[in-house]
């Protein structure tokens, strides 16, 4: 309830700011009511299972019809590839990448797959001013290239650095990001291509609430194997893709400083004051104006008054 109130409040506030235009409120399905998708699907990624075979990357590349990779998908030298001191990330040619982490805690490397986490309250969606993003009831956060203007705010807002921009294109640039294989699979109840391709079942697909249960069961029944935390259960308000790890999450490239609340919550201070400014400012400043120019007016009126002494009293009443 609280959340719903907040969202409709925010929307109401900002819609009014577009005062000059009548804003159609048909956008509600896209920009609100995330909690109403309890049947949304999710994936739990188990880092202890992933062996870094990159089958998921290859599957995604074919499923999403992405450009030919620079090196074959069975070339594991990419794990040593560093860019500005950072490991690989998603870009306009790859919706998902797997990175290797060597941690002192354990004697073998861990691998971590990155793709869109399909947040419950996605920052990309809430920051987009043309409503290019939609959270579908199936749990996917999809993108509509037809209305996107390419401002790249979603890229700034996404706490996981997921959306990427097709900078290479002059005429048909667009955001490139994992869409949970929505069009081709999820919509029909099928698991995404990467999940299906994974030999290790490091990716477990199911309703978000179910895979969350599965994750908790794994933690409970194999004591000592996992750190007692499911990354994405609460991070930024919860994500559809969640992670299990045997070492602390910050050791395997996760940002453990992301807020526990949806990103939009940190914007709401501003959003809350918008209606205030809108309603209070006009009166306030017109009032200032009347006060500030009172002297001039008085002078003017006195002049007039001299001419029309008979009306003097009426005039003075008026200006008070």
């Amino acid at each position: 309830m609280k959340k719903l109130n907040r969202r409709s409040f925010i929307k109401g506030g900002l819609a009014t700011t577009a005062a000059a235009m009548v804003v159609k409120e048909k956008t509600s399905a896209a920009s609100g009511d995330f909690d109403n998708y309890p049947e949304g699907m999710g994936v739990i990624v188990d880092l202890t299972r992933c062996v870094g075979c990159r089958s998921c990357e290859a599957a995604c590349n074919k499923e999403q019809d992405l450009p030919e990779p620079a090196v074959p998908f069975d070339d594991f030298s990419v794990f040593d590839h560093m860019h500005h001191g950072e490991k690989r990330r998603t870009d306009e040619t790859a919706y998902t990448v797997v990175n290797r982490y060597d941690t002192p805690e354990i004697d073998h490397p861990l691998f971590r797959k990155i793709q869109c986490n399909h947040c419950n309250e996605p920052a990309c969606l809430t920051s987009c001013f043309v409503n290019a993003y939609t959270k579908t009831p199936e749990g996917a956060v999809i993108y509509n290239a037809k209305v996107c203007v390419g401002c790249r705010t979603c890229m700034v807002a996404c706490p996981f650095y997921i959306p990427t921009f097709k900078y290479s294109s002059a005429f048909t640039p667009r955001i490139m990001k994992c869409i949970f294989c929505y069009d081709t699979r999820l919509k029909n109840g099928q698991p995404p291509a990467c999940v299906e391709a994974c030999p290790q079942e490091a990716l477990t697909f199911g309703r978000r609430k179910d895979v969350l249960k599965i994750g908790k069961q794994r933690i409970r029944e194999t004591p000592g194997k996992y750190v007692d935390h499911i990354y994405g259960e609460h991070e930024v308000g919860g994500t559809a893709w969640m992670y299990l790890s045997s070492v602390p999450f910050d050791k395997v490239g996760f940002d453990t400083h992301v807020p526990k609340e949806p990103i939009i919550n940190s914007v709401k201070e501003f959003l809350a004051m918008v209606p205030m400014v809108l309603t209070i400012w006009p009166g306030l400043f017109v009032g200032f104006h009347l006060l500030a120019t009172r002297k001039d007016k008085v002078k003017e009126m006195e002049k007039e008054a001299e001419l029309k002494k008979a009306k003097e009293n009426d005039e003075k009443e008026e200006q008070v």
């Binding site: 920051s127 001013f129 390419g150 640039p173 914007v267």
Partner: peptide, 28 residues
């Protein structure tokens, strides 16, 4: 800077995202 500069009026007339801060910036 916009990827699709020819769509500048989109946030005003074509596809509105009134819950976004940038929407307010654009309009204002």
């Amino acid at each position: 800077d916009l990827g699709m500069p020819w769509r500048l009026p989109y946030p005003m007339f074509v596809s509105l995202g009134p819950a976004a801060v940038l929407f307010l910036v654009a309009w204002h």
